[in-house]
Nucleic acid binder design. Structure first.
Lengths: 244, 244
DNA sequence: CTAATAGTGTCTATCAGACACTATCCT
DNA sequence: AGGATAGTGTCTGATAGACACTATTAG
């Protein structure tokens, strides 16, 4: 840091949210319809500018989460994952955006009413494939956020953030299958996830499904880092190949 | 992103660099002595404000690397890892800093002469333990950067960035030992690293040491992601415990 | 009973870790 | 030869993946 702070170029600071959840066993992302000028009417990630000069960046992310969606801040996992600040990314000027990854538990119904009326869950596959056009560089941000989630459920307990306070092992498996886009063997998954120290702990009760044997319920365990990690099966040499 | 861009608080944007290398088999970090007002004379991470309103953030990081150190930009690995933007972190105003992790190959001598005269390599252990006082929140940033490096050499080829264009397997092992702060079995490491697809490739030649059998030389392979990953031995339950 | 889902047992190929051993340089 | 470092062979215990089997519910 040098001393020329008075003639330093100044930028506008924003936060953007990649909010993921599972709906009908598929990974979905929350998008909002823009109501204002640049890209008005287009779909975009929830987000916005810093409100006050003293606002903490994570607070801004939580505030946008509360304002633009009807999600419960308490139950949503939120973490910063990258900064986007290329000069040309916003026509209003130099906007530097801190991107957050948010994981919401399964929700029975989409958002509605309130201020979050414009919010809609969209299947991630389609969004990343370009089925819907996103404002600014938001498709890139969404892709990076999804990739971060894919990588992070390997070695962290992030997958439990997709579930409610208690969940069955089958539900947890559905998270891995949806995020990774693959099938896993239920028997092996069952033991693997139980053997991973501190990942999940029994919640005592059981849950009856429409049919079949009732499943035991679990809670997220104390450990945030998984050892041993969940290993993503190798599809081919492609996965191990050139990436960041 | 909402429309109130004209009354959005504006911030100064900076970059800070956590530059790591190996010196005498120990992990070192490059620190500079501040020559200007806030924390003048104190040690700090290399870094500085954005120079032009159109400057790309990674370009600013590369520019500071060139200006404040005598390292060769071409050989230094550089990647963003986190943003620090708390309101109180800089007395000059709201400064949001994008932190970069830089990995430099082994260097025979420290920096000297030129503009980078104030730059000094310091052992990471001492810096993180608080032996030297760092300006601003730079000790926290340094700790986060080191932790990122520790985690990333597990599943990425980042460790090769600590080595020159060609290196021996023993040199690569020293990287893992220094960054993780543990000892590894040379025999098992030798085969493990060779079996990991695309991690290192033979360079044909050999290198004679002062004593002992000459070692084969290798180059970094094409894969940036390691499969299977290098596994960090479990020290106890502590490693698997509550972290981010 | 059948259908359906939850959970257990067990075999096999692979791999991490321990460590004896061989190879190739220097003096 | 002796010292030192590079590189190989091999055993053992643990684990991922495949998959047969048992358990518990609803109807």
């Amino acid at each position: 840091m040098n001393d020329d702070s008075w003639q330093t170029p100044i930028v506008m600071l924003a936060v953007d949210l990649v909010i993921l959840t599972l709906r009908r066993s598929r990974l979905h992302i929350l998008l909002v319809e823009r109501g204002v000028r640049p890209h008005r009417g287009a779909l975009a990630l929830p987000g916005g500018f810093l409100r006050h000069i003293d606002e903490e960046i994570p607070d801004a992310a939580r505030r946008e989460l509360a304002e633009e969606t009807d999600l419960d801040i308490e139950t949503v996992h939120l973490e910063e994952f990258r900064v986007y600040g290329s000069p040309g990314r916003d026509p209003r000027g130099r906007v530097v955006s801190v991107a957050f990854l948010a994981i919401a538990p399964r929700l029975p119904e989409p958002t509605a009413g309130t201020d979050a009326a414009a919010a809609r869950w969209q299947p991630v596959d389609g969004v990343l494939a370009g089925d819907v056009r996103l404002a600014f560089d938001h498709r890139r941000i969404a892709a990076d956020g999804v990739e971060r989630a894919r990588a992070k459920i390997e070695y962290s307990a992030l997958a439990t953030a997709f579930c409610g306070p208690t969940f069955t092992i089958t539900e947890l498996q559905e998270v891995y299958e949806a995020v990774w886009g693959i099938q896993l063997d239920p028997r092996n998954f069952y033991r693997k996830v139980q053997k991973t120290d501190g990942f999940i702990i029994p919640a005592g009760t059981e849950r009856k499904a429409a049919t079949g044997r009732p499943a035991r319920l679990f809670r997220a365990g104390p450990h945030k880092t998984l050892y041993p990690p969940m290993v993503r099966p190798v599809v081919s040499a492609a996965l191990t190949g050139e990436g960041t």
